[in-house]
Simulated scan of single mutants.
Amino acid sequence: MPDTPQPASKRGLGVFLLVAGVLGLLAAYELSVEKVLTLSDPEHVPSCNVGVLVGCSTNLESWQGSVFGFPNPFLGMMAWPVVITIAVALISRVEFPRWIWIGFNVGVAGALVFVGWLIYQSIYVLDVLCPWCMLTWAVTIPTFWAVTLDNLREGRIPSSARVQRLAGAWFGWIPLITVVCYLVVILLAQAQMNAIPRVMLDLQNLFG
């Protein structure tokens, strides 16, 4: 296959996915290490425990932290390298067949649903905000929008010409869409947990 020029938007998507994948893998790695250290030493205090509201211990020790019978971060250790691989391939101008893009979209959609459920559990059940978990949420949300809107605008997901045009227009608004999603999470956390003052108090105790 000849080496045809790739649209700048595809390489830009690749760069974004690379950054998101690296950050997601970092979060999964840190949580995995803390889980292993906690299992090997029940007295271990995770470094991500900032205060009463901000910490990892509650999440890691809960059943929500091992939904599939093993620690959730292990999923990230398996999934984020896939995102990184696809990102590097895009930057290197590799063209993927449609079925890979559809499979990728199914994967990021599943990740978003799982993250949404974890956000609910953290805010409404566990009453704690895990820093590395929040980093995972932060990169999963725009990853879903970027992959989904790109697939729609390119017609990989069967859709009308109007939907493709809308997806192409919305693609440029992904930063704003992401910020709106973040604000929704923040508002939910504030309404249920009185999160902002409690986070500030934790940080004050940490650095004060």
Rank of each mutant, 00 (worst) to 15 (best):
L75E: 00
F104N: 07
P71D: 02
N105E: 12
M78G: 15
N105C: 13
E95M: 05
M78Q: 06
G107R: 00
F70Y: 15
V108C: 06
G76Q: 00
A109K: 04
V106Y: 10
M77H: 00
V88S: 08
V108L: 08
G110N: 09
A111S: 15
I84P: 04
A79Q: 14
N105V: 10
V94Y: 12
V67Y: 12
G103K: 08
G107E: 01
M78K: 05
R98W: 09
F70V: 11
V82M: 13
V82A: 14
G107H: 03
V108M: 10
A89L: 13
I86V: 15
F104A: 13
V106Q: 01
N72K: 01
A111Q: 11
L75Y: 14
T85L: 13
R93P: 02
I86T: 11
S92M: 12
A89P: 06
F96A: 03
P73K: 02
A89K: 11
M78Y: 09
I91E: 00
G65F: 04
G110A: 12
V106G: 09
W101N: 10
G107L: 11
V88Y: 08
F68R: 04
N72C: 02
P71A: 01
I100C: 12
G69C: 05
A111H: 07
L75G: 10
R98Q: 13
I91H: 05
T85F: 14
P71H: 06
P81D: 01
A79G: 15
I86C: 09
V82E: 06
G76T: 00
G69Y: 04
V83Y: 10
V67C: 00
L75P: 00
G110T: 10
S92L: 11
W80S: 05
Q64A: 13
P71L: 03
F96R: 00
I91Q: 08
T85N: 05
V88E: 01
F74D: 01
A109N: 02
A109S: 14
G107W: 04
I100T: 15
W99S: 15
P81C: 03
R93Y: 06
M77N: 09
F74L: 15
I100K: 09
Q64W: 13
F74R: 03
L90W: 04
M78D: 01
L75Q: 07
M77G: 15
W101F: 06
P81A: 06
Q64G: 07
V88M: 10
F96L: 05
G69A: 07
G107K: 05
M78C: 13
Q64K: 11
S92V: 04
G103E: 03
W101Y: 12
M78R: 08
P81Y: 05
F70G: 04
E95F: 08
F74S: 00
G110F: 08
S92A: 14
F96H: 01
A79H: 08
G103P: 07
G107M: 11
Q64H: 14
L90Y: 02
I91T: 09
G107V: 01
E95W: 14
V83D: 01
W101Q: 05
V67E: 06
F104D: 03
F70P: 11
W80V: 00
I91Y: 07
I100L: 15
I100H: 09
M78W: 08
V82K: 10
I91F: 07
F68K: 01
P97A: 05
R98T: 15
I86Y: 10
P81T: 07
G76F: 01
W101D: 14
G65Y: 00
I100Q: 11
F70L: 13
G69Q: 07
I86G: 05
G65K: 00
G107S: 09
G107F: 08
A79T: 15
E95G: 03
